[in-house]
Computed example of a mutant assay.
Amino acid sequence: MRSPSAVSGLPALVFAALVGTMAMMAFVAVIGPVVRLLGLSEWHAGLSVTAAGVLWMLSARRWGALSDRIGRRRVLLTALAAYALIYVALAVYVDTALQSPPAVWLSVLALVGLRALVGLFYAAVPPTAAALVADEAAPGRRAGAMAKLGTANAVGMVVGPAAAGWIAFQNLSLTLYVAALLPVLALGVIAWRLPATVPAVATATGPRPRLSWRDPRLRLPVLAVFAAMISVTVAQVTVGFFAIDRLRLPPAEGARMAGLALTAVGVGLIVAQVGVMKLTTVPPRRWIALGALVSAVGFASVALVQLPWQLLASYAVAAFGMGFVFPSFQALAADSVEAHEQGAAAGAVASVQGLGMVIGPMLGTLLYRVTPSAPYLLVGVVLGVLAVVAGLHGRGAR
């Protein structure tokens, strides 16, 4: 039986996940100042992020199925090359526009369009990487390798905004140029270190796999990823407002507190996923049930927060639970399907991730207008339901 470390090319996949996430988060860190300097409205920034989520949702399943047909390495190289070219175009446009601001409509079109294309092509990386891990790691032992990818994403979530903020303090345009180099590095490492892969359908018989969200085998993974992404995006979009309104901080201090809370999230994710890597015999269903329960307590407790340290502690606990959930729904999806369906299954799960990225920010901001506690209480209920469903699903399996 393979161990997670026996997956060929795993270090290259981990590196690509790390720098790819750093590049994605660098844009999020600088979009606010860019929008202000170009004379755009706040909703234009939200539109650019939402557009990326929509294309991610629509394309991830197709990318995964394509990797089944033509091979994982080929899809990764194609997607990362396009990702790098589009990011360079985005950096060049922003640099030029900041020197001589064009018409508002042109800036909106460029930022939204290019960011959407970034989401379109980066959507190929998570499902293809997960499918490649599933190809080589033995069933029941995949969560550890998936957790390595998850840890890389978590580190990228922490380091990306921090590095972008430091560089942007020196030169705003330089931030995007540096971020544009990251997918180029990922492309080079994948080309150099990832072995050639045989298309999964080359060894399969019958029709090509066409897995949907409604496939009975994927019900729990799909529910888990949807609940997790709704929870995470709601927490991301509301934390800055919560720090200002509930903790009565000035805007600058509120932004700082939001950054600290998201740093606590990254730390919690990393610590939890290290545990998943070590305890490889725990079934994914059990990790999902435990993680959802812990996260439900963490997010719901935000409704009681009155002091800054309490907000950081609540976010850290919630993220610790999420660190159990994220690698486990990927591993569970992989364990639930056949070898020639791995890309299609990973793509189906990733497309639901994109759906959560679209719905979560809108839902969070609408509920926040009712009361600052409402988004966090809803997330607590959603994750509580997931914990119960995962627990019952595990009993049925036994």
Rank of each mutant, 00 (worst) to 15 (best):
R398N: 09
R72A: 05
G156L: 11
A350L: 10
D68P: 03
V49N: 14
A200F: 05
L187K: 02
L55W: 05
A300T: 07
A296T: 02
L149A: 08
G268S: 00
G39S: 00
A97V: 04
V125A: 02
T96H: 13
L98T: 04
G364A: 11
R285Q: 15
Q310K: 12
A134G: 15
A204Y: 08
F320R: 00
V112C: 04
Y315L: 11
T280I: 12
L38R: 03
R286N: 05
G396Q: 12
P372E: 08
E253S: 14
V297F: 05
A397N: 06
I86L: 10
A16S: 15
I190Q: 04
A134M: 10
S295V: 10
I230Y: 03
A29V: 02
A333V: 03
G119H: 15
G354C: 09
I244D: 07
T21G: 07
V28R: 08
A345R: 00
S301E: 03
A154V: 04
V133R: 05
V189K: 08
T128S: 08
A346E: 00
M1H: 12
S328T: 04
R141G: 15
F169T: 12
L366P: 09
Y83G: 02
L363A: 15
R369E: 06
G275D: 00
G206S: 12
Y83T: 06
W63R: 10
Q310C: 09
P195R: 07
G360Y: 01
I86F: 05
V370R: 13
G39R: 00
G165T: 08
L13R: 14
A45L: 06
A84L: 02
Y315D: 06
V19M: 13
A163P: 12
P11H: 15
L47T: 12
